[in-house]
């Protein structure tokens, strides 16, 4: 045996940046995450050339999955042109040579921070969500060891109590994004800080979702066709943001999640948050060809 057999031949950078060992670990942990939907699987989480908290968890999963035939889309807050989305997209293309796209319909792999696209994802697509805090119990139990025990016992009483208290105090559940949801009837997970608008898209979806928190070193998954139920009381139904009737001032798109843009006169205007859907809607309005896929919401209502 020589050193040569132990190591690999020199490359300026590993394909997909991560060393083969790092990828093997992510592969093993991803398989377990898929097998136990919603369960947080700890992993070593290598450092990548981006600061922690900036999508390093999602990036490690994307770097593991990527190959030269995989078309990649990256969004942040729904936008492809957001600075960090642009930076991650550039990095992924640079380390893998994979083609990039902004069109949800064309993408094989979508890495996203805080949104699920408005066009329905298909059985062959993977959505990788960046997760700042993987622990839905953190607001009621900051200690991770205790929280883990609570998951083991399916002890979610304090979670329910917190929601109940919000209803008593404020007349409604005050949870904005990151709405805690029960996966496959067993684990409460955070769907990552997606708005409530996006949570119903996860229930029995056709695509695979992998949620990865690089800083907190945990990943979890929602396989296709898996139940995802936001925690609600029977008599207080789950409510998405009241955006169903809003119209995008730029594109005219209506019935999707919007960004509120404060105006100087004190009013607000709205822009569709899924930027590429906005672009496609503009193309269509201008008479250019643009294919808009089936959307989860129609006229602001989620299809049943």
């Amino acid at each position: 045996m020589s050193l040569e057999t132990l190591t690999k031949s020199w490359e300026p950078m590993s394909y997909g940046f991560l060393d083969a060992s790092a990828k093997r670990e992510i592969r093993r942990k991803t398989l377990k995450a898929i097998a136990v939907p919603g369960c947080q699987i700890p992993y070593a989480s290598r450092e990548v050339p981006m600061a922690r908290g900036w999508g390093t968890g999602g990036l490690q999963v994307s770097c593991t999955l990527i190959n030269p035939d995989m078309r990649v889309k990256v969004i942040d807050q729904g936008a492809d042109d957001s600075v960090n989305a642009a930076s991650i997209r550039k990095f992924l293309a640079r380390v893998s040579g994979a083609p990039v796209t902004m069109d949800t319909l064309e993408a094989d792999l979508i890495q996203s921070r805080h949104r699920i696209p408005e066009e329905k994802l298909r059985e062959d697509q993977v959505l990788v969500l960046q997760v700042p805090n993987p622990e839905p119990l953190r607001p009621v139990q900051p200690n991770m060891s205790i929280a883990r025990q609570m998951h083991a016992d399916a002890d979610y009483g304090r979670m329910w109590l917190q929601l109940y208290e919000q209803i008593v105090r404020s007349g409604r559940v005050m949870q904005g994004a990151s709405y805690p949801s029960l996966v496959n009837g067993r684990f409460v997970m955070t769907p990552s800080p997606i708005p409530r608008w996006d949570v119903p898209k996860m229930d029995m979806a056709a695509h695979l979702t992998i949620l990865s928190a690089g800083r907190e070193k945990r990943l979890h998954a929602v396989p296709p066709y898996t139940r995802v139920e936001p925690l609600v009381f029977d008599d207080v139904p789950f409510r998405v943001e009241d955006h169903g009737r809003l119209v995008c001032t730029r594109s005219g798109a209506r019935g999707f999640f919007m960004n509120e843009i404060p105006q100087e006169d004190g009013t607000s205007s709205f822009e569709v948050s899924d930027s590429e859907l906005g672009v496609k809607t503009i193309h269509r309005r201008d008479g250019d060809a643009a294919r808009i896929g089936e959307t989860w919401y129609t006229d602001g209502e989620m299809a049943q």
């Binding site: 300026p12 950078m13 394909y15 997909g16 593991t64 999955l65 190959n67 030269p68 293309a93 640079r94």
Partner: peptide
């Protein structure tokens, strides 16, 4: 450190194997 976006045979094989297992 410059990009070298061509997977080795090993990388391509293990990547495809994992993709099959994942799905």
């Amino acid at each position: 450190m410059t990009a070298h976006p061509a997977p080795s045979e090993f990388e391509a094989r293990t990547n495809a194997t994992f993709e099959a297992l994942m799905w």
